[in-house]
């Protein structure tokens, strides 16, 4: 007798051993149809590298280069990784660019939905971050993550906002945040300049600081590009700059000895 009601009325499967004839370790293997059936995005393909962001006197500033890599191939060199959401928020993403585009579509839909209510309310940076972190956490809980690290920045009601969310749903807020390689290379420079001095840091200083960090990253991060954009959010709203070119000098490379291709 098969005591499992879910098996009643179904075709018998002799491989299933319904009577427990064999000891557990000898039971014939049954094939699970779905073992390999459902496959999810489980590695990033076309990726963006670091995003940097800082708080400054009048608001927040965020920078990301224009490269989307395909593994080690610099595949798309004109991709914008900063995205305006609503009237007082900007997001910047590293990680999988197709997942990021899905997130842009999703957020734009939410902003439109809120607008059509016509109640005079719209989403500020805190709301966008809360929403995004719920989406990211729920996707990781379904073991089907959106493979990104995202910075959310904004300025609303005289208050700066800067926070992080990633594919695990981990969130935090700080005066300066960087994703990817930026967390190792740019964060020491940013913290030294920003921590405890947010209210003194002018827009020009902030812009120069991010420019320097983007240059250091371009020198050291092999998946980066010398072309980037800066987003500024302050009392006058969101502004995403045109592409900025990094001036670099490689003449020092001539003098390096001891490794590499040259023989002496």
């Amino acid at each position: 007798m098969d005591h499992f009601p879910t098996n009643w009325g179904r075709p018998r499967n002799d491989a299933a051993d319904p009577y427990g004839t064999y000891p557990i370790h000898q039971r014939p293997a049954t094939k699970d149809t779905f073992a390999e059936g459902v496959q999810r995005t489980q590695q990033p393909i076309v990726t963006g590298t670091s995003v940097l962001a800082i708080q400054y006197k009048d608001g927040i500033m965020m920078a990301a280069d224009n490269l989307a890599s395909y593994g080690s191939l610099a595949r798309f060199k004109d991709i914008q990784r900063l995205h305006k959401v609503g009237t007082s928020t900007v997001i910047g993403a590293s990680g999988d660019m197709s997942d990021f585009q899905a997130i842009q579509t999703l957020l734009d839909e939410v902003v439109t939905d809120e607008f059509t209510h016509g109640d005079g309310h719209d989403l500020g940076p805190a709301e966008v971050h809360e929403y995004l972190s719920r989406v990211m956490y729920s996707r990781r809980s379904k073991i089907n993550p959106l493979w990104n690290s995202i910075l959310v920045g904004g300025f609303r009601d005289g208050k700066r906002f800067l926070a992080y969310v990633d594919l695990l749903g981990t969130t935090y807020s700080a005066p300066s945040i960087a994703t990817g390689y930026g967390a190792y290379i740019a964060i020491p420079l940013l913290r030294a300049a920003v921590d405890g001095r947010v209210d003194e840091l002018t827009e020009e200083n902030a812009r120069a600081l991010l420019h320097d960090c983007m240059r250091v990253l371009f020198y050291r991060d092999a998946r980066s590009l010398d072309k980037y954009q800066i987003a500024t959010v302050n009392a006058s709203g969101v502004h995403i700059s045109d592409q900025i070119h990094l001036d670099t000098s490689w003449s020092f490379a001539e003098g390096i000895r001891g490794y590499g291709a040259q023989t002496q």
Partner: peptide, 8 residues
Amino acid sequence: YSIQTRYA
């Protein structure tokens, strides 16, 4: 080995 934030 990275400190994400000093206040959480």
